[in-house]
Write a protein that binds this DNA or RNA. Sequence first.
DNA 1: AAATCGGTCAACCGCGACTTT
DNA 2: GAAAGTCGCGGTTGACCGATT
Length: 242
Amino acid sequence: MVYRFQEAMQQGEHLRKGTWLQEEDEQLTSFVALLGGRRWDSLAKVAGLRRSGKSCRLRWMNYLRPNLKHGPFSDEEEHLIVQLQQQWGNKWSKIARRLPGRTDNEIKNYWRTHLRKTAQAQQEGEYKYELKIATHDFNQKSIDMVSKNYNYENVCCQDSEGETNDNDGSMNSFPLSDWELRSSPYESRILDWVAELQNGNGIAEKKVEQDCNSTGSFNYNPQEFEEGCDTWDYSGSLWDMN
DNA sequence: AAATCGGTCAACCGCGACTTT
DNA sequence: GAAAGTCGCGGTTGACCGATT
């Protein structure tokens, strides 16, 4: 799969695909410094790279660009991604602008690998919840046969203040403590965040605040994430190579 | 030790939006 | 205003690697 550079250079005008070689990276980096990060098709030709402009741009944006972070996501970053994905959906480039040094591709991959599992677990959780209701129903009916006093809603769907909760069987009303499918503390933390966000209540905000206080470094303010108030701009000092 | 499986992530693809000619 | 060129985005693919059987 990995071609030798010399071989690649002998392949005529055919555009190369696949993994970038160190020589190609160096060549691209020096020509971007020289010509700037635009007109990628022209840059690729001038640089003598057997790559499409698109490929060059992608390599630069996702890997070679200065100030990029490479490594695991911090708790703050994870939290922020979850928050913003909830808010904006799969707008990865938009989300990436809130995470200095992270690329849309990186965030997208992170979401798919770590949080798709969460979604699946959530679905299974719903299934489990239905089973639980069915089991509860069955047991309750057995009790009813004795007591003749069955009222499902009153038994299971009132909180301590006597207010009736959401009763549609969705995960909105499902107590997280009953989830037994979490495969790791990491995933359970994400699950907690997602569930709290879905509840959309002050508890979630309080929890976030507590988490922030505990780490002492993160504070989520929804107003900061309104359209058009980027806190990080690609186009400024990032492009300064010196 | 070898085969298989599953997770991760770099890179590609297609398409729409934007810019230039 | 139209055509061509370029850019940016989101979805998808496939190679790689460690864990498991």
